[in-house]
């Protein structure tokens, strides 16, 4: 009785083939008053890949993720999700459409257990009505058991059985990050957005997390877009990298190509002023 999450069940909703464009961002610009956070950026995310978004601090990476999951609405440009141009959308609509995310600074319910936190990720999928849920009986109970099973599979997948009943606030940071990933996975997303999944981790935790990200990508076929500062991790994990600087795209391509680009080097290391 080994737990093995059936990839077919997790594969997502659209039935898209690997390699098709899942999400495309065209000429998107976002500004807050006079501050231009993103200027005329276009790129795409292909089904089944690990896509990294990198750039120095303040480059607009998190804003870009917020645009993708509908938290911000760009003033210009279009976003095409699964072949359809997307209208203005609320984050929860994005979520029920198959986009899940984790946050740069862990955003879990600290007083709740790991299990309960992950169960919240199933909230959008619960269909039984409020009354039944209050009674916790009949269809609501049946539904909860099904969802619990799914959650247990994810717990098994991420190897966090030992902290199942531990309040999240008591966990070390690395594990909290893993719980957050678990909660995002509980939504069975098609596109998973990870905002600095490895920030503040030690080497061992980073290795574990990298392993899990790759496993998620390979086993479930989940497309992943991640922001990360650790270049070693980015270069090892991602299939393609897009580099932002001051809200503009300065490079886009496979990791080694991006690494060699002079613009990228300049953006990270700076250029001397010419007098």
């Amino acid at each position: 009785m080994s737990a093995f999450v059936d990839p077919a069940r997790m594969a997502g909703h659209s039935g898209m083939e690997k390699g098709e464009v899942l999400l495309r961002v065209d000429n998107v610009s976002l500004s807050f008053g006079g501050v231009k956070a993103i200027t005329n950026i276009s790129f795409d995310i292909v089904k089944g890949e690990v896509r990294a978004i990198i750039g120095p601090n303040g480059a607009g990476k998190t804003s870009m993720l917020n645009v993708i999951n509908g938290f911000y609405h760009p003033q210009e440009g279009t976003i095409t999700w699964r072949g359809k141009v997307r209208r203005k959308m609320k984050p929860y609509e994005a979520a029920s459409n198959g986009i899940a995310r984790t946050f740069q600074n862990v955003a879990l319910f600290k007083g709740m257990t790991t299990l309960d936190n992950i169960m919240t990720g199933r909230g959008l999928k619960m269909k039984s009505n409020f009354i039944w849920q209050c009674l916790h009986w009949g269809p609501a109970l049946k539904e909860e058991i099904e969802h619990r099973r799914k959650v247990e599979e994810i717990i098994d997948f991420l190897e966090i059985q030992a902290i199942r009943k531990t309040p999240v606030g008591r966990l070390p940071y690395g594990l909290q990050k893993r719980v957050e990933l678990a909660r995002a996975l509980a939504m069975e997303p098609e596109l998973l957005l990870l905002d600095e999944p490895m920030a503040g981790m030690n080497l061992e935790e980073k290795e574990d997390m990298s392993r899990f990200i790759l496993d998620v990508n390979q086993q479930f076929g989940t497309t992943i877009a991640l922001i990360e500062h650790d270049m070693g991790v980015v270069m090892d994990l991602s299939d393609r990298v897009v580099v932002l600087d001051y809200g503009r795209k300065i490079a886009d391509g496979p990791p080694d190509e991006v690494q060699a680009s002079q613009d990228v080097i300049d953006a990270y290391l700076g250029v001397p002023h010419e007098h």
């Binding site: 009785m1 080994s2 737990a3 619990r148 099973r149 247990e152 599979e153 717990i155 098994d156 059985q161 199942r164």
Partner: peptide
């Protein structure tokens, strides 16, 4: 018995 997916089988 083995505990699997949180349940003793």
């Amino acid at each position: 018995r083995e505990k699997d997916l949180g349940i003793w089988q």
